[in-house]
Design a protein around this nucleic acid. Structure first.
Lengths: 401, 401
DNA sequence: CATCGTTTGTCTAGTGGATGAACAAAGTTT
DNA sequence: AAACTTTGTTCATCCACTAGACAAACGATG
């Protein structure tokens, strides 16, 4: 069965209403007249759509604005408090949960560090966090509009977690579990995809349409924004860049391949290199990303060089990606972004030396602005968008299909 | 300035008309009633749209069909002879030109081998070919609806050839030149992109929506079909996969990078390996792809092994691409596809051994069906599609913008 | 302060396209 | 021959957008 979008006036209205709401979100405070100008829609059309949006509590009137030589406009604002969204970032050794309003502002935040990778335990913790966040949400028109979860692994289009190697999970139906528990739409997404979306919406990626977001943690994941949209592969599990070969004669990887990027440029690689080099930490501290960064900060040159090596190898893989995608922007995110100071120069240098000239034109390389929050904010925003496009009057959407 | 698509009934009609035409193209012979069923549009709506399409000569009625228990349906067919399209494949040592009808059937074909890479000469040849093809087109309602040219290089979104290394061209405005000469819409596209489109439309890629087309000639180019659409990077020059690093300590490439894929798996690589190994051809024939394949066919094991090596290295690069994109299908095309017999096994083996299991699921690896014609057919089809969507009544499209 | 021009937002009549139902034409089945 | 089906057209109706009239609210000007 092919999807035939048959076009009729219902679709037109829904689409125009979305357009109006979008303009209000992007440009508020704004008047009806300004929206008409901006969209090209007729004043009357805008007026009627705006009134419907008011009835549905998606926007509010906030009194008269400044006159531009005539009658004073009525200012419209997006009602970001019409509902709340929950975003969960499921890391390998932590869970971060945020409650955001419809505009992505964080209202509450919960973090738990986890030791047991046991699914039962983690599931309990997740439910706990969601419970706490739900209770912390102020009363609103629509309540919790959705829950999003970012996981470090492969998720199919139906939201099933096929494989999360670092958690040792396979075929987990987290979505159904949470939906049964909380009775709101739940959405599961790969951690890197969510991070890419988060940075594009709220972080350094705001002004770009073709973004490569590289999530460098224990492993390496990549989220792709192509033509302004998140690209997922055939079955929803693209972005396994971590296992791209960058050295033909390299060591064997756990994945079966050889010379994988992840073996050279991830947090795991850094830790192993540090151990091999016999890095000594003060007070017998355990070797970790944070402790190594601290050591480098204190002036330990050898550790600095370890970090710089990571930067160079990041550049090697990035060079491939840039030549492939010719993106506008590359964002380095997740935990390793904290080492920006040591990574940036060797990374930039490698790319400057190796990348094709025409791919370097208009290429921006940035480090994450949201740091550890990109993923949680990203999945929360996913839920919001899903809610706003499908709408509370979901019946209509179904009817018109 | 952002593009605001404001939706009104004009758009609805245009979109529905396109939908109806599309269904006729895909499913002809077909009746009005069947279209209504297929699209979900009302019988009356279909009837009126079909009548307009008849007036515009895009379709024809071909008499009554077989009854299914009631009045006999009137059979509609796409009028593939309403106009003709010209596709030019500009290779490094040849020019291939085809004249196709609106359905992509080849009506005429012209090939010229070129020795001089001088732009003036090539330009003259191209104009000659187009002239010949134009004259060979039968009379029709719309005549030549467009000219497409596929070039082995980087083309920006405005159709300017920024760089064609193997032709030694830079910043060539071929599009304007041809448009002034022939007064029809001209469109310039990268050879690999066009090939990908050609294979998806007419070749082995018909049934897939996420395709990686690898054009292996003197260099390596790649065309990406993602979610059913051709993906081009930020400035329209993605797909420079040929310069993806697959060996960190590899030799230096002309592009400035090291260990580029192209140095291991292209036609050029094959020829150089053959020279280095001192391959001796009968009758002092010059070393070329064709002559090497002939030699291998005659049972020369050493030459066969050279070809198999190419297959393996193709696998190395493909492995990266597959892990990145998780495509449904990979197509090996262009001249090297002629060596399918020797390439297939080592290529398949490498991928079977190295690629992540979940990326191998539902992955199809094929060799081009159109062989040397993918690019020419692809660009010709581009022109047709542009013509059919913008329509002959281009004024309307402009009006509604 | 009165008048004029301007801006904002609402209202109404009109337009265009999709829809559903009625209907005629042309079949098949019983 | 009668009953039922399928096909394609016609027509009244619905619905969303548009244009333009209009009133309300405001600044500028004399």
């Amino acid at each position: 069965m092919k999807e035939n979008k048959t076009w009729n006036q219902h679709v037109v209205k829904k689409e125009n209403k979305s357009l109006v709401l979008e303009k209000i979100m992007e440009n508020s405070p704004i008047s009806r007249a300004a929206i008409a100008n901006l969209t090209g829609l007729n004043k009357g059309t805008v007026s009627s759509l705006v009134n419907e949006l008011l009835d549905e509590h998606f926007i509010t009137e906030s009194g008269p604005g400044k006159s531009n030589g005539g009658r004073r406009p009525v200012i419209l604002e997006f009602n970001q408090l019409a509902g709340y969204s929950i975003g969960i970032d499921l890391g390998v050794n932590y869970i971060l949960g945020v409650l955001t309003d419809l505009k992505g502002n964080i209202c509450h935040e919960e973090t738990v560090t986890i030791n047991e990778l046991n699914f039962e335990e983690i599931n309990k913790e997740i439910i706990n966090i969601i419970d706490t966040l739900t209770k912390s949400a102020p009363p609103s028109a629509y309540g919790i509009v959705g829950i999003g979860v970012g996981v470090p692994g492969v998720v199919n289009k139906e939201g099933k977690i096929l494989l999360a190697p670092n958690l040792d999970w396979r075929n987990v139906e987290l979505k159904e579990l949470l939906e049964k528990q909380f009775h709101v739409p739940v959405l599961i997404e790969n951690e890197a995809n969510a991070g890419a979306y988060g940075e594009r919406k709220f972080g350094v990626g705001k002004d770009y349409n073709n973004i490569i977001y590289v999530s460098v943690g224990i492993g390496i994941g990549v989220g792709l924004i192509l033509n302004g949209e998140l690209y997922k592969g055939n079955n929803g599990f693209s972005g396994e860049f971590g296992h791209m070969t960058i050295e033909l004669d390299g060591p064997k990887c756990r994945c079966g391949n050889v010379g994988c990027w992840e073996l050279y440029a991830s947090e795991k690689a850094l830790l192993e290199n540090a151990k091999r080099n016999g890095v000594k930490l003060p007070k017998n501290e355990a070797i970790s990303l944070d402790s190594l960064i601290d050591l480098a900060k204190e002036g330990d040159a050898a550790t600095g060089r370890l970090l710089e090596d990571i930067g160079k190898y990041l550049g090697v893989g990035l060079n491939n990606i840039i030549n492939i995608f010719n993106p506008e922007q590359v964002i380095i995110g997740n935990r390793m972004a904290a080492a920006e100071y040591w990574l940036k120069e060797p990374l930039d240098n490698w790319i400057y030396d190796q990348t094709l000239w025409f791919s370097q034109k208009d290429l921006q390389i940035d480090f994450s602005a949201l740091r550890t929050h990109s993923t949680a904010l990203g999945v929360a925003a996913f839920s919001v968008e899903k809610f706003l496009t499908n709408g509370p009057n979901h019946a209509i959407t179904v009817m018109n299909k």
